[in-house]
Design a protein around this nucleic acid. Structure first.
Lengths: 330, 330
DNA sequence: TATAATAAAGTAAGCGTTTGCAAAAAGTAC
DNA sequence: GTACTTTTTGCAAACGCTTACTTTATTATA
């Protein structure tokens, strides 16, 4: 155990200056004579003084802390986003308070409120979707917030995404040129905007290719659900499939292989997350590539601007996507 | 934008009591007459008052926040541990400040100090290993800390682990009964205690089975390194291999398949993390199972006790491991 | 050299809570 | 009704730092 904490006051006394001066050299604010600056700096180092972030937060009403909200700590999609956020936040010296809501939307508002009471300077919100309620709460609170990989219906909140609708359409169109039975696997949430966009993309394709049969299959997230959904795929004689979640796709892939169905010859599978799982799958998983890391990074960068009250003209960022053909599509 | 924040003072005024009383009902501390309690409670709800965690932290010297330190945000191993931590922390109403050190040990101490200045009540430290320096820093600071999935040489710090040496020995022994050329893939850090234990486990097996050739292969973490390491495996005609990292194992698996090497017939592969990746691999990856989620949970539980200054008799927890045979071993 | 600017340093009032201690109120026992 | 407990409450001092404002020192200007 060390001796009790050293405060700015201790430093001031030892340096024979006022706390204000010490504060100034610590923060680099205001004018301080170079000479005193050095003296104080030296003493700070000698004493091993480290400012108390909590006190600072209370006094300045800024915590240099941002809240990151995500539904699941153990999910490659959010983790890659989070990594982008984390790296940029480091660049700007922000600390991160993590809040996971573990699936249920129920307590989301409480979680958020807890973030508020922590006085975070800003929030990056990630999720499969965002409810109007949450969106309003965030908006009304007036605390800088940006959505990453998710978008709200009303477009009240700044966000960083790809164009889900267009991406889906592209894939669907490509499939439509070769097959007549195509499926989109979508998660069974009701209020999911992102999924909505995907469905719209498919609808558009369906309109353009009226003879082709387009199917929506609803399934949960995760590998097991992919495994499970394969039977439906098989029963319906689907020839090509687009999923949202890599784990689901891999489930389908593996279920197919296990049953001796050849991929991509008998079934083409494309996913839409392009996490690093895609490379580990066999056959390697084709995917719409969302630049997850970049999305996180851009979101965080935007948030720093918002927190500094800089004007950000385009608050609805759409990053380019790609379609990456690996071995699960022809 | 909402009207400016409501403080405990506002509530007190409206309820016509002192701040002290409001504080008491908020925290459930001290005696308050049931009648006033209800009145105040009501007003709190009506006004939508939420205590300011920062001020509270400053006044009480407790932030109900713990720091989680990990090297990589996007790594299934740490994520599963983190999930265990997160769930338990939720149970006890602790918030989480996340700090990732992104690989380099360089700035670890700074990162930790930043955690200190945030006045966290406790720390869960995860990493591939822990340097003596960091260990001492943590120890001297006297802030409750527990290591999860890692152990320090000196055993100064409480920790939760499996018995790496024994687990390795078991696998090695099993391999030794069938083959005469066996490898252990280990990460090329110098000061890695966990790896050390593994090597010791192998050494023991080597001693017991002197005719068998045991090999240590050094490689970095991650899928690509697994891919890369396969050539060495092949060149040395290794027949069975144990890796630390699932991604590395999958790299080996895939490289082998890609080159037409049959697994497990021509090469047995076992890993030691048993993240959910193991199930997604084809063939499914056999693995020593570390109960990662539980390790995280136990670590966090222990931390709560430490923070409450309860005595914890056994501070070096060893959780049982299993050897799970899937399809990559016979 | 006097005077206006400007730079450097200090003062002290917060920031929103908690909490030890004291005061007031409500019970009890006689 | 008095004296003494025991509850309830309120007061006000921290907690460690920032920052508007003031004072003092320094430099530039004429």
């Amino acid at each position: 155990m060390k001796k009790s904490t050293i405060t700015i006051y201790d430093v001031a006394k030892k340096a024979d200056v006022s706390m204000a001066t010490v504060s100034r050299v610590v923060n680099g604010t205001g004018k301080v004579k170079e000479e005193t600056r050095q003296k104080v700096q030296q003493i700070i180092e000698d004493m091993g003084y480290h400012p108390n972030a909590v006190a600072r937060g209370l006094a300045s009403q800024k915590t240099t802390t941002i809240g990151i909200f995500l539904p699941d700590l153990n999910n490659a999609y959010f983790n890659e986003l989070a990594q982008g956020i984390d790296d940029v936040s480091k660049l700007y010296n922000y600390n991160i308070i993590l809040m996971s809501s573990s699936i249920s939307h129920q307590n989301e508002k409480d979680v958020l409120r807890s973030l508020f009471s922590q006085q975070v300077d800003g929030i990056v919100y990630m999720s499969y979707d965002i409810s109007d309620e949450v969106c309003d709460l965030l908006y009304e609170k007036g605390i800088p917030t940006v959505l990453a990989g998710v978008i709200d219906y009303k477009r009240q909140l700044p966000s960083v995404n790809i164009d889900y609708k267009a991406a889906t359409f592209e894939v669907m169109e490509r499939f439509a040129q070769k097959y007549n039975s195509i499926a989109l696997v979508v998660q069974d949430k009701n209020t999911n905007v992102n999924q909505d966009f995907r469905c719209k993309g498919m609808a558009e394709a369906a309109k353009k290719y009226p003879k082709i049969q387009f199917e929506v299959i609803r399934a949960g997230y995760g590998y097991e659900n992919g495994l499970a959904v394969f039977n439906e795929v098989k029963a319906k004689k689907i020839q090509a499939i687009l999923t949202t979640d890599d784990s689901v796709a891999i489930g389908i892939l593996n279920a197919a292989s296990d049953q001796g169905i050849k991929i991509p010859e008998e079934l083409e599978v494309m996913s839409a997350m392009n996490t690093k799982l895609a490379l580990m799958a066999r056959p390697e998983l084709s995917s719409i590539s969302q630049p997850l890391y970049d999305m996180g990074a851009v979101a965080m960068r935007m948030l720093t601007k918002l927190m500094k009250k800089e004007v950000v003209q385009d608050q609805q960022v759409i990053l380019p996507h790609e379609i990456i053909n690996r071995k699960s599509t022809k």
